[in-house]
Computed example of a mutant assay.
Amino acid sequence: MRREGEIALPFDPATRAEAGITFVGRIRSPWGKGTAPKNLRLARETGQGARVELDPVYAPALTGLRVGQAIQLLYWVDRGERDLLIQNPHHDRGIKGTFALRSPVRPNPIALGTVVITSIDMEAGVLGIDATDAWDGTPVLDIKPWFDSVDVPPGWHPER
């Protein structure tokens, strides 16, 4: 259901796909529709961990990762809507463009979560992670290490 002020695309962005992607695995979590936290901060507050189960052919790609390391997990919000350009979020006043929000409703439903590795099973290709807001079974696009020297802009300070 659309909220006041929201604007949708006149087409389904999935019909304009221009590139192929491969899902490297799936997120396993306790979350589903109506039970998932709205973001990673809230997910961490639940104390519920999760795991990433890779397709076995990708298990060797975990080489070099370590427990306690922060990673960026890119995942495909496969059960989300894709058509909103302008949204009216519950948590904020006023309408905002999709690119000004972390909402899962986007033309390409790609989500990014910076999480911490809690366990690694190289043989099985499974990473334990500290938290996720993703629903159980959400496809994983990629895993990248997080580096403060690369991922934090020089001289950047959080808005207060």
Rank of each mutant, 00 (worst) to 15 (best):
81 E>G: 13
81 E>S: 03
81 E>W: 10
82 R>G: 05
82 R>D: 10
82 R>N: 06
83 D>E: 08
84 L>I: 13
84 L>M: 10
85 L>I: 08
86 I>W: 03
86 I>S: 08
88 N>R: 10
89 P>Q: 10
90 H>V: 14
90 H>A: 14
91 H>D: 15
91 H>Q: 11
91 H>A: 11
92 D>Y: 15
92 D>S: 14
92 D>L: 15
92 D>I: 12
93 R>Q: 15
93 R>M: 06
94 G>R: 13
94 G>V: 09
95 I>Q: 14
96 K>T: 11
99 F>T: 05
100 A>W: 03
101 L>A: 06
101 L>S: 14
101 L>D: 10
103 S>W: 05
103 S>H: 02
103 S>D: 09
104 P>I: 01
105 V>I: 14
105 V>M: 10
106 R>M: 05
107 P>F: 11
109 P>G: 08
110 I>L: 05
111 A>V: 14
111 A>C: 05
111 A>S: 10
112 L>D: 03
112 L>F: 05
113 G>C: 11
113 G>V: 04
114 T>Y: 13
114 T>S: 15
114 T>L: 12
116 V>F: 07
116 V>G: 00
116 V>E: 08
117 I>P: 00
117 I>F: 07
118 T>W: 04
118 T>C: 11
119 S>M: 12
120 I>R: 00
120 I>G: 02
122 M>A: 15
122 M>T: 10
123 E>R: 12
123 E>Q: 09
125 G>N: 00
125 G>F: 00
126 V>Y: 04
127 L>A: 00
128 G>Q: 05
128 G>E: 09
128 G>T: 09
128 G>D: 02
129 I>V: 10
130 D>N: 08
130 D>V: 13
130 D>H: 11
132 T>W: 05
132 T>H: 09
132 T>S: 07
133 D>H: 09
134 A>I: 08
134 A>S: 11
135 W>E: 09
136 D>I: 01
136 D>P: 07
137 G>W: 12
137 G>M: 12
138 T>E: 04
138 T>R: 01
139 P>L: 08
139 P>I: 05
140 V>Y: 13
143 I>N: 06
146 W>L: 06
146 W>N: 08
146 W>E: 03
147 F>K: 05
148 D>K: 12
148 D>F: 13
149 S>C: 11
149 S>D: 07
150 V>W: 12
